[in-house]
């Protein structure tokens, strides 16, 4: 736990800032899960809910922005407090992107035909779960200011990337065999891409959590080559 500050109002601002980031994260998490559920079940109402939720995430982001700027301007935080504010500012931006990806997945719900027994669709939920778990765990690491958990999450991105490669190849061969489904599978290809990006963004958050907690950067990750 971080030591209390002499100025109580500063403590309150910091707590509120972290609360706002957590609230954004909660919304994004739910959107990731619901977007996939809507896609698998063809539930357009649920998809509309996900799309509507993105507005709320955007509003929260601007609130985080305002509060961070206010804290920076009025309280001139130093050391770990400064890192904390910067991390909140950046993490809010990343969560907003994650929300956009979930919204993008939800927008594709209406474009998938012949959903029943559509084989490519069965691959995505598990990949989505991997990425969703990363987002969940990284937000928990943020709440706990836990650099060890953050470092572990960075490692997990390789799993999502491997999954993406596997799904990519699978989709390509499916399209070759069933040209009639190309338009639907192409949509799913973008969904897979979005999920892969969500995983990348989760690692970005993990890096910021690590930086905010320790003041040091995580070593660079190896770049994974794109699927051939």
């Amino acid at each position: 736990m971080v030591a209390e500050h002499t100025v109580k109002a500063f403590d309150e601002d910091m707590t509120r800032l972290r609360g706002l980031v957590a609230e954004m994260g909660g919304l994004a998490e739910l959107s990731i899960a619901e977007a996939m559920e809507a896609l698998v079940n063809g539930d357009e109402d649920l998809a509309a809910g996900v799309i509507a939720r993105d507005r709320r995430i955007d509003l929260l982001e601007s609130e985080v922005d305002r509060l961070s700027v206010r804290v920076l301007a009025l309280r001139a935080p130093m050391a770990d407090d400064l890192r904390e504010v910067i991390a909140a500012l950046k993490i809010a931006g990343v969560i907003e992107r994650i929300g956009d990806y979930a919204k993008n997945i939800a927008k594709r719900v209406g474009h998938i035909e012949g959903r029943k027994r559509f084989e490519p669709l069965t691959l995505l939920p598990m990949m989505n779960e991997l990425a969703g778990d990363m987002v969940h765990d990284v937000l928990t690491a943020y709440a706990a200011r836990d650099p060890v958990a953050a470092a572990e999450i960075v490692q997990r991105d390789a799993k999502v990337d491997a999954f993406y490669d596997s799904v990519f190849r699978n989709f390509v061969s499916y399209m070759v065999e069933n040209p009639a489904t190309i338009s639907s599978v192409a949509q799913l290809m973008f969904v897979a891409r979005n999920i892969e990006r969500i995983g990348d963004h989760a690692t970005n958050i993990a890096e910021m959590v690590h930086f905010a907690a320790t003041g040091t950067y995580l070593p660079e990750r190896e770049d994974v080559p794109p699927p051939a």
Partner: peptide, 18 residues
């Protein structure tokens, strides 16, 4: 997690419903 004490309740609950 033990870190939740002293934090905003949203940090611990996070889920929109909560």
């Amino acid at each position: 997690g033990g870190h939740i004490i002293g934090q905003d309740a949203r940090v611990a609950l996070r889920h929109p419903e909560a």
